[in-house]
Amino acid sequence: MIVYTLKRLGLAALVAITVSIISFMLIRLSGDPAIALAGENATSEQIEFIRIQYGFDRPLVIQYLDWAHRALQADFGESPYFQQPVTRIIGDRIGVTLKLGVMSLIFAVAVSIPMGVLASIRPNTWIDRIALSISVMGQAMPSFWFGLIMIIVLGVWLRLLPISGTDSFAHYIMPTIALGYYGIPAFMRLTRSGMLEVLSSDHIRTARAKGLRWGKVLFKHALRNAIIPVVALAAVQLGFMLGGSIVIESVFALHGIGYLAWESIGRRDLPVVQAIVLLLSMIFVALTLLSDIINAFLDPRIRVK
């Protein structure tokens, strides 16, 4: 277990370094970041000033090492638009995104696991068909469009829920559904196939033969085994949801880091964009590492592979 954890840790570190190089290079795609930062009407003196102020005149490797060194201390420089440290701007907003991400994950799991279990107990019946149809439709529905439809129906016609902002729990309901339903198909299919596999195994038959109650067999013997891959998927899905929240946050005007990233891209606020890309990637790396370790802990067979 320790060897496995160390191996995973090393891999995660390597991924983290590579990702940081990519997010560092990302803002240099346009050619000269100084021109992008200075804006369209800047004079060549202003551009030169920015180039020296941000250190763009130094060799790329030095720039990266310097940036990475400061990033490790949670210092991403100053945002030219806000005239404030990037860390503080992101710190103010990340709470909203994390809250939305975690709530969406809970929503997706809470809907899909019962659905997957039901579908697996009665495979190829109408319950199974409905569950499958929901998951197929879910995968085809654009989340931003689903969000807008909810705003029209639930927010404006029925006046049930507030349509934008983050003031109360009710403000998060529609964004949570819009972001979370996208994870439902994956969770449901995994739960269903895992349950089908476990339910046909010998130890379930033995448990049934011993005369244990069906409910107990289902939840204590079957679901426990089938849920292991779901835990791994949950970590990965949370990462995808945080990354995908950019679309949902802009639909519902939630001021999280997704919305911030969208606005910052529009106004060429490059240090902020860079920091958010790096932060989201790092969260993803940490989540997958965590899921690998939890998985190996729950299922000893994985450690040997």
């Binding site: 991924v15 990302l26 950019i246 997958t288």
Partner: peptide
């Protein structure tokens, strides 16, 4: 496998947006 892991770690929509706007 390493490249796949790196790619999955990057938030696709955000990176695509940044690339499209910058280029």
């Amino acid at each position: 496998s390493f490249l796949v892991t790196v790619r999955l770690a990057l938030p696709a929509v955000l990176v695509a947006l940044a690339v499209v706007v910058l280029i």
